[in-house]
Design a protein around this nucleic acid. Sequence first.
DNA 1: TGCAGTGTTGCTTC
DNA 2: CGAAGCAACACTGC
Length: 292
Amino acid sequence: MPELPEVETTVRGLNAKIRNRIFVGLWSDWKKTVKKPRSFAQFEKELHGKKVQRVWRRAKNVIIDLSEGYSLLIHQKMAGHLLVGRWHQESGRWISDERGPLDEKINLYIHLLFTFDDGSMMALSDYRKFAKAELWKTDELLRSPEFIQLGPEPLDKQFTVEKFETVFHRKRGKVKQVLMDPYVIAGIGNIYSSEALWWAKINPFKDVSQLSKKELAWLYTAVQKVLAAGVKLRGESFADYRDVHGKKGEFDTERKVYKREGELCSRCKRAKILRVKIGGRSAFYCPYCQKA
DNA sequence: TGCAGTGTTGCTTC
DNA sequence: CGAAGCAACACTGC
């Protein structure tokens, strides 16, 4: 579900709510969510008593830095939601104490529930059970290969158009797939790659090695534009993304091609948006604006 | 009923 | 050996 803007929205929400809180309790009905340490009991034991220092994001990972040099990493994968609030259990189900957007549906899929020292809680809801939680020593996480190998952050000030060109010229393959490769550039998934390519007027099938310098510059600008708009609008909730309070994002007003197959392109008004398969995923584009 | 799905990984094949 | 392709993960909703 979440791509960079959605994860960023979640991270900002967590920072406002759980800083300085101390982990005192843990509940789970799907312990496989915890991947590290291997043993759930060990995870629970090591987490207990740790204080939240700050929450940040790398690619689509939420990282909660803790006292004593620990970091809790959570990846929401396709359908995970991180929520904060208070819940109580009724006949085996978690019920939100608050009225409003944290409705019953999302609560049904809570598989991991952390309790803090002040009685507030952080829940990981995930109807597909793909999300993962890992407890690391912070320095080990930062030195781990899977972390080091991640591509640059597209919204970093240091991520210049020159860096973008360098990163892309090293690769080959369909530009759509390369954009979604977290080891090439971080945080871009199926929605924002489709949107960026539409803004840049680039055909998603085009091989990255065939992109002109001009096209690379357009794509660089488009990637930053759609991601920044996504963050500003607090994410895309076309599917089921919600922020930590269960609220929807507003990026849907900006959605130009994703899941719009058959609709007239809003820019050229001469062609209908196509849906095709690239690398096993659906890609959406305007065959007129984004000629091969 | 069948299939697609916001992501990533790891296995197989070339 | 590297790259590419694809199943697997597990479940809901159209």
